[in-house]
Design a protein around this nucleic acid. Structure first.
Ligand SMILES: [Mn+2]
Ligand SMILES: [Mn+2]
Ligand SMILES: [Zn+2]
Ligand SMILES: [Zn+2]
Lengths: 147, 147
DNA sequence: GCCGTTATGCAATAAAGTTGCATTCGGGAA
DNA sequence: TTCCCGAATGCAACTTTATTGCATAACGGC
C-alpha cells in the first residue's frame, strides 16, 4: 500500500533526517499489506543489515509521534504498525482475528462513522477515531469448520 | 453503571459458579464509572480480602470469554476491563487519553456506525465492532494550557 | 579535522500477563 | 459424617514486549 508516498519527503517535513534505518523501516511498513509488529519489522530489516531492536523501537516511536506511522494496539500483546493516514492513504478500520492474532486493513469505505455529535459535545481534544473489528478471519474459520 | 445487572444470575447462566471472588470482581467492575486495569481491580479486592493476582487474571479471562466482561486494550500497556454490552448496558465507544492513560466510557448515542456494507462483504466472522476515540482529556487539556 | 548534535548499541530493568504444579475448597455420594 | 473428585486458588518461576541509562559511533556544519 501507499506506493505513492515519498518517505524521504515525509521524514524531512517532520523534521527527521531521512537516514538509512528510518527509510528502511518505513519501506517495510509501507510495502506490507497489513500492519506488522515491531518484532516482525525488526526481523525483516535485521536480515539485510543488522540493527539493534532498541533502535527499531525508538524509530517507531518517533514515527508514531509525528503521525507518519500509526500504532495499532489490540488484544494481542504486541502493537502493530502501519502507515498513518495521509493524502494518499485514507483512514480505515482494522480487523483483528481473535484466533490467530492477524491484524488486517479494511477498505476505507467499508464503514462509515458519523462523528458530528461527538465532535460537538466532547469536552476534550480528539485526535483519532478508530474503528476496530474483532472476530475470526477467513482462514481460521476454514480451519475450525474442518474439525 | 449497570446497577440493574444481577451478577449472580449472569454467572450462573454462563456456567460459572457465583463464588466470592468472581462476584467481588464483577461488583468492582460494575460499580466503577470507567474501565479498570487488572492491577486496579486486584488492588481493590485485595484490600478487603486478600487474593492472589493470578486469580484475578484468571477470573477476568473467563469473564471475558463468556462475554460478561469486555476487555478494552489501548496504547497503554495494560488492558482495561468493563462490563460487556448486555440488555441493561448498550455498546458504546471508549475514549483513551494519550496524555494520562485514562480510559472512559462515552454515551452509546455519541457515535453511530453504519455497519451494513461491512456485514455484507466481510469474509470472516465478526464478533465486535469497537470504536476507540483517542485524544487529550479535559483534565490534561487544562493542565497543558496552564503552562 | 574539530566539535556539538543526533543516532545507535548493549545490558539491565520494568510492566503485564502466563504457566506449571501443589494445595485447598466445596458439594454430592456413600 | 466422611470420602472423593473436580473446580478454584496460591505461589514461584517464566515469558513477552517494551523502556531506560549510559557508552560509543556517525553525521554535518564550520
Ligand atoms: Mn491499515
Ligand atoms: Mn464502557
Ligand atoms: Zn485468524
Ligand atoms: Zn488525560
Amino acid at each position: 500500500m501507499c506506493e505513492l508516498c515519498d518517505y524521504n519527503l515525509m521524514l524531512e517535513e517532520a523534521g527527521l533526517a531521512p537516514n538509512d534505518n528510518r527509510l528502511r523501516i518505513l519501506e517495510v511498513i509501507g510495502a506490507n499489506a497489513y500492519p506488522l509488529t515491531a518484532a516482525e519489522i525488526f526481523a525483516v530489516i535485521d536480515r539485510t543489515k543488522p540493527v539493534n531492536r532498541v533502535t527499531v523501537y525508538r524509530i517507531l516511536d518517533s514515527l508514531v509521534q509525528r503521525r507518519i506511522v500509526e500504532k495499532i494496539s489490540g488484544s494481542s500483546r504486541a502493537a502493530h504498525y502501519g502507515l498513518a493516514p495521509n493524502d494518499n492513504h485514507l483512514p480505515h478500520p482494522h480487523f483483528h482475528c481473535t484466533s490467530c492474532g492477524l491484524v488486517d486493513c479494511l477498505a476505507p469505505e467499508t464503514l462509515s462513522v458519523d462523528q458530528d455529535r461527538l465532535m460537538k459535545t466532547f469536552a476534550g481534544e480528539i485526535e483519532r477515531v478508530d474503528v476496530r473489528i474483532e472476530g475470526t478471519c477467513r482462514n481460521c474459520l476454514k480451519l475450525k469448520n474442518r474439525t
